[in-house]
């Protein structure tokens, strides 16, 4: 009866890196739509619901495939996490603290800048100019993304990694600003 819709179990499950899993080229300039379309088609094909509950082997295969597809989608749909993943494929894991392959330490100059911004945060908090301050930090965060993008385009993984590390600092600062806004309202 439903043999055709259950064909997922016959083809081989997606494998490889996140791009390969979704059948996409490993590029930074994918549109959200490209990622979505690829994801939805695969998610539909491999969903565990398409396998009857009595076929344990097929059920397991479809769950493993679905998990891989969902993990890949999560990593690639957002431009920033996609950049981070490209950097990881280039050999730098931003989530690791390994001195050789982990996130690079931010430059001295950047850290000095960061300290000044943080002082700016407490001033803005007292002076009631938080919105304006937030805007500045947002701009800095966007600049870091753009710089990482430019570096990746040139194939310069270390530079991209450095920019992405900086972006994370800005993101943390933005989160703190949001927390401040929450507690003050």
């Amino acid at each position: 009866m439903a043999a055709e819709s259950r064909s997922a179990s016959k083809s081989s499950p997606p494998s490889g890196d996140h791009f390969a899993v979704l059948g996409l080229a490993a590029r930074h300039d994918l549109t959200r739509d490209e990622v979505e379309v690829a994801y939805l088609a695969l998610a539909k094909q491999w969903h565990p619901d398409r396998v009857g509950p009595d076929d344990l082997a097929a059920k397991r295969r479809s769950m493993e495939a679905s998990a891989a597809i969902n993990v890949a989608y999560r990593a690639l749909r957002d431009p920033v996490t996609r950049l981070e993943y490209l950097v990881k494929l280039g050999g730098v894991d931003l989530d690791s603290s390994d001195p050789k392959t982990g996130a690079p330490a931010p430059t001295q100059a950047f850290l000095v800048d960061m300290i000044e911004r943080r002082e700016g945060l407490s001033d803005a908090r007292q002076g009631g100019t938080l919105a304006g301050f937030r805007g500045e930090v947002e701009d800095a965060e966007e600049e870091a993304v753009d710089a990482a993008l430019a570096a990746i385009t040139e194939g310069d993984t270390p530079a991209a990694a450095q920019s992405l590390v900086q972006r994370r600092y800005w993101q943390r600062l933005l989160d703190e600003i949001d927390d401040t806004e929450h507690t003050s309202t």
């Binding site: 490889g16 890196d17 996140h18 899993v21 509950p53 009595d54 344990l56 059920k59 397991r60 769950m63 493993e64 998990a67 891989a68 993990v71 890949a72 990881k88 494929l89 894991d93």
Partner: peptide
């Protein structure tokens, strides 16, 4: 490269299916 998805889903052994599910 860390793309393993876990692939450890434990599917419960069917509890002696007396009737078709």
């Amino acid at each position: 490269d860390g793309n393993d998805t876990g692939a450890l889903f434990q599917i419960e052994e069917p509890v002696a299916p007396m009737r078709k599910t």
